[in-house]
Amino acid sequence: MDALAVSPNVLWVFAAICAALLCASAISALLARGAGRDGHRELRLRVRSWWLMVAVFAAALTLHRNLTLIFFAFVSFLALKEYLSLIPTRRSDRRVLFWAYLTIPAQYVWVGMEWYGMFIIFLPVYVFLFLPLRMVLVGETTEFLRAAGTLHWGLMTTVFSISHVAFLLVLPEARNPVAGGAGLVLYLVLLTESNDIAQYLWGKSLGRRKILPKVSPNKTWAGFLGGVVTVTVLAVMLAPYLTPLDPLHAGVAGALVGTGGFVGDVVISAVKRDIGVKDSGALIPGHGGILDRIDSLTYTAPLLFHYLRYLSF
């Protein structure tokens, strides 16, 4: 894939995203006019941040394959850093944490080499075995299990899961003639983020019965089901332009993203509740931290990747 050699379908879908964002900007501007100076400030910030994120993502995805890989490696780095800054870490583990950061470039190099075997076992097997060894060499046994467990959970979520988005990019182009790997990445990310937004909107407008009141008091059954239906419809509509899926398989993919996205969201909510913070950070105005934005992706990326790989590759 050479510079700007992405399929025109990918560019058309980005154009459609821009149109949707224009609508969102217009609606938030109208709402703000009705509500006075500070009204809907959060919404305006949120839409503005969406514009920026879409611009960066579009540039990273369309300019060059390696740029896309570096972009997702950087997302993993920001997410892991945010996670390690939130959880309690032991001072004696400084060097262990440094090794944990080094797994990021390694994991994305396996993706760049299209070395599936190494990509899929590196973190769950080799890193899982190596980091406790490094901790033993330090010799601190107080809170050992908690330190080893929380570190590995963080790596699986922020590096292993997210790197699946990048591996979609390097799947053989020939099996997805309509849009190539970039089309699959866009399909996954667009469905996941639409699901987040759809669940929020359905929940705000119709939501009454709480689904998991102890973990996430704002999540309702209407939000969850509305999101799943919306994203299933969207998945079927987009599939012919971006994927090799037939309508039935695309519908299942949509339901998978809708359900997985919800689970990823509430799992990260449970982690934040455990730590005692509302947002994971303040990196993205109106959204919170990077983990708040990619929480659902930590579930949808591996789920959709293995579903697609089983069906088509």
Partner: peptide
């Protein structure tokens, strides 16, 4: 948080927000 990233007596910088 900076004392976590690079405390006194350490030469290795570990990233933290």
């Amino acid at each position: 948080g900076l004392g976590k990233a690079l405390p006194k007596g350490e030469g290795l910088l570990v990233p933290f927000f």
